[in-house]
Design a protein around this nucleic acid. Structure first.
Length: 526
RNA sequence: GGUGAUGUGCCCGAGUGGUCUAAGGGGGCUGAUUGCAAAUCAGCUUGUCAGCGGUUCGAAUCCGCUCAUCACCUCCA
């Protein structure tokens, strides 16, 4: 098995990744509370762990990845009052929004998405076990976890029990200690509730994850992930509950992704409340729905899911990512180079003179699904050697705590080598596919696609996602060919005035023309 | 107040003891190419790694202090 190192928040160090039962790997990621539309910050964890699962699978592991949905809690109840509709309806709507966003960003590796309300019996059983073992106590209708009974409480977030501040409100009076937290909450009248040994009520937030991860992944599983903001109290509490209940560690590796922050020009969605100073104070700080952020789907429409995914993966997962429009535009600019190459590649390898679907052939390339080298050509072909070397560097970067940023830089190196190869060998639509230069190009491009796919990039053509349906895009392409032909005639007659009018007007419309020796192509430029 | 994170060139950002006279991207500039552009390729642009002190044969990388920014300690991916 390959040597992969992961940073464990519990030990605060990188450790060799050793699954409990190789090749099986269980991953649990804390998902959203579905009371409002997701914002871009919610996508960090899913994109990272989607990539981690892809990489672990690529490395030969059989990964089971669970992301939970919290579909009952205080905020949902409040929202349901406000909108005068049932909690379940809000949860349903917002889950659909979340899933749509995941799909756009290419997050499709999740195996189970359990909902808290589907696991009430397991949750109740879990609380009963804790109560029987003396770690929990009931106080008329509420059940609390008694922090003092767990001597190791605070190990994850490194806080002593004295540092804990409890929730205020009426619950505080019932607790034995201010650090104790609710496992079961008594229902107030009219609230959504389930019957339990302690009366009508609903589960506390932390116990849901303990119960569901246990139900699906077992007592101890390999990786537990989530945002850094969940480390305390959520994960600390999960750790305590599960550890105390089963007398075994909940998970081997705790992985936390960095949080996203809105930068100076960050317009994440209207900043609604407080301190909207009259001066044009730049909106910055943590992105959160309580500040009115959300509406990720509009960001996706503006930028495409792939661009957002790339933007997230460019930075190491444990770093803070500063989100702003400029960053996304920059990510888009760097992706363009790849997309243009795909078109170039297509022209060379395509038998058809002018393909209506640029880049298509790239997306049809068969690639290796495992990191085990299928064949080691060790040829004297410099491009092949470069590709092989890049592959090695890419794997080394990902082995080192999933360093996707460094891995992406390898992709750029490969891209440049491929373009250089085309330039130097004068490859174009006329090139014979049997020639060693073209075969070499195809082989090395296959490596590029293989590595990008591990990151969940360039899997299917979606960079033109904002174009219309297929019939329209065929028509558009035909019309563009017409204009390109007209301009070509003008240029051949050295009527540059006409040629430039065509090009400039198209530029104004957001269409760029790409003249090459072999002919002219076009792309959307904004 | 407590806990944790961060500070690398114009910007984003990788790098956690020697291979770092510091990856990659964006921007800008120059050359090749082009009717001119764009695209592509080549090159340049710019840093001794927040500051000070220490450990070490050797530090961006370890330790201490100072400064700054951010987050968590109430719900949050």
């Amino acid at each position: 098995m390959p040597e992969i190192r992961v940073y464990n928040t519990l030990s605060k160090s990188k450790e060799l990744f050793q699954p409990l039962e190789p090749p099986k790997v269980g991953i649990y990621l804390c998902g959203p509370t579905v009371y409002a539309e997701s914002h871009i910050g919610h996508m960090v964890g899913p994109v990272i762990f989607d990539t981690i699962k892809r990489y672990l699978s690529y490395s030969g592991y059989e990964v089971t990845w669970v992301v939970n949905i919290t579909d009952v809690d205080d905020k949902l109840i409040a929202k349901s009052r406000e909108r005068q509709i049932p909690v379940s309806q809000i949860a349903c709507e917002m889950t659909a929004d979340y899933l749509a966003n995941l799909r756009e960003l290419g997050v499709n590796q999740i195996d189970y998405m359990p909902r808290a309300t589907d696991h009430i019996p397991e949750i109740i059983q879990f609380i009963k076990d804790l109560e029987e073992k003396g770690f929990a106590y009931a106080v008329d209708g509420d059940v609390f976890f008694e922090v003092a009974k767990d001597p190791r409480y605070g190990q994850l977030s490194n806080r002593s029990v004295d540092d804990q501040q409890g929730e205020g409100g009426e619950a505080a009076a019932k607790k034995r200690s201010h650090g104790d937290f609710a496992l079961w909450k008594q229902a107030k009248s009219g609230e959504i509730s389930w019957s339990s040994p302690w009366g009508e009520g609903r589960p506390g937030w932390h116990i849901e994850c303990s119960a569901m991860s246990h139900a699906i992944l077992g007592t101890t599983f390999d990786i537990h992930g989530g945002g850094l903001d969940l480390m305390f109290p959520h994960h600390e509490n999960e750790l305590a509950q599960s550890g105390c209940c089963h007398a075994a560690p909940m998970t081997t590796y705790w992985m936390h992704n960095g949080l996203m922050r809105a930068g100076e020009k960050g317009k994440v969605g209207g900043k609604s409340d407080r301190e909207q100073s009259s001066t044009d104070e730049p909106a910055s700080g943590k992105i959160s729905r309580s500040k009115g952020d959300g509406g990720l789907s509009s960001v996706i429409r503006r930028h495409t899911g792939e661009r957002i995914r790339f933007f997230l993966l460019r930075t190491h997962y444990r770093s803070t990512i500063v989100y702003n429009e400029d960053g996304l535009l920059e990510a888009g600019a760097s992706l363009e180079g790849f997309y243009r190459f795909f078109d170039r590649f297509n022209e060379i390898t395509s038998e058809i003179e002018c393909s209506k679907f640029p880049g298509q052939l790239f997306y049809e390339l068969e690639v290796s699904k495992t990191r085990e080298p299928s064949d080691l050509p060790s040829s004297d072909d410099p491009l092949q050697n470069f590709a092989l070397e890049s592959r090695g560097k890419f794997i080394a970067a990902m082995d080192d705590d999933f360093n996707s940023g460094a891995a992406i830089s390898i992709l750029f190196d490969l891209l440049r080598a491929l373009n250089r190869h085309i330039d130097q060998n004068n490859l174009g639509p006329g090139s014979k596919s049997e020639t060693s230069e073209v075969q070499s190009l195809i082989q090395a491009t296959r490596t590029l696609r293989e590595l990008a796919n591990v990151l969940g990039l360039f899997i299917k053509p979606n960079h033109n996602a904002n174009s219309g349906d297929e019939a329209d895009s065929v028509l558009l392409d035909d019309v563009m060919r017409l204009l390109i032909d007209l301009r070509k005639d003008a240029r051949e007659k050295k009527d540059y005035a006409t040629a430039d009018v065509i090009r400039n007007r198209l530029t104004d419309l957001g269409v760029a023309l790409l003249d090459k020796k072999e002919g002219t192509n076009w792309e959307r430029s904004s």
